[in-house]
Structures are given as C-alpha cells and as structure tokens.
Design a protein around this nucleic acid. Sequence first.
DNA 1: AAAACGGGGGC
DNA 2: GCCCCAGTTTT
Length: 206
Amino acid sequence: MKIVKIIKILKNFYTLRVFEERDPYRVLIRTILSQRTRDENTDEATSRLFHEYPTIKDIAEAPIERIEWLIRPAGFYRVKARRIKEVSRIILEEYDGRVPSKLEDLLQLPGVGRKTANCVLVYAYGKAAIPVDTHVHRISNRLGLVDTRTPEVTEKKLREIVPREYWIELNDLFVQFGQEICKPINPRHDECPIKKYCNYYRLLSF
DNA sequence: AAAACGGGGGC
DNA sequence: GCCCCAGTTTT
C-alpha cells in the first residue's frame, strides 16, 4: 500500500511531536490560535494567554481587549479573541466546563471547523481522526493519494485509503514534511525522500 | 465561490 | 517593501 510506505519513510526523517498538552481545553484553545499561524507564533500567544488566564473561567471573564493583546502574535487576533471567549462561555454554560468529545458538538462551537475539531479528538481524546490542513490537502493531492479541491473531500478520501492506525500521525508527519520539503511553492524535489511515489514529481520530469 | 481577518518571517 | 502562511465564517 502506497500510503503506508510513504508514512514509514517519513517516520525515518521526522520524530512525532507528541503533543505534551493533553488537557482538552488547552488543546482546543491552542488549536484555534494555530489557525493560519506558524508554530512559534502559536506557542508565544498560547503561553502568554494561559500565563495570565490559567483557567477556562478566567478566559470567559477576561476583558476582550486584554485577550486580543495577549494573543496578538498569532494573528487574526480580534476574531480569535472573540471566538476563544465565546467558546469558553459556551463550554462552561452548556457542557459543564468540559470540552465536548463528539465531532458534531465540537463543530457547533464558534471558530471550530473540521480541522480544529479533529485536532481536539486526536490530541486531547486520543480518538482516530484525520485533521486536514493545507499541508495535508496539498501533499495528498501532489502524491496522487487523492484528487480533490477541498480539504473536506480530501479527509473523506483519506479515511478510505489510510489504515486507521496511521490516522493520528498523518497530520504531524505531513505538516513537518510540508514545511521543509513539500512546500507550497518551490518544493525541494532534490531532497525529497518519497519522490518515487509522487505524481507531481513524475509529471515534472517531462 | 470569494472575501475578510493579521502579525511574523522569508527574500 | 512585497508576498506567503497549521482555517473559519460571512457575504
């Protein structure tokens, strides 16, 4: 199976960044902050926020302007601040302060789409899911694993062709691979360890 | 289907 | 200085 070979090769090059943070609420907030944002800026914003407001109740009651300032490094800080505060309020009022562990419940929360919801399921609850971000979407299409135009359809197809035991690590491996090698523009084919499996590379050598 | 939100980093 | 980036919601 092509995808299994690809994953095994990538695992030789990248160590899985086991999410140290397993607290569902912190995973959720960090993941919202990470939307369209690089890791370093996400980390900075997350630690600033939780340093000043350690609990869900703190954030639910915090002044919106202060949240905006704290998470500024993550970008999109105005909309993210409002969503983070609103999400916190909803979880406190409707879920007794516990982050929901069902996909359909997570998707109801403001600022939580399929990618973020799946990240919570995987990293906080250890459930099998495939968070599809732009890296996973782009790389899956380049390799020829799927042929889709939306992340949603890519997720559906990946669920069919990727053995369940690899779902959790797929996102992490593809993101690292996507940042360093299979970049959106000017991918580094010369250093690519899986180009023999890649449709995009095959078309190039013409 | 396209626009809007955004600071940070690469070049 | 210009361009791109670990999405989601609204128009």
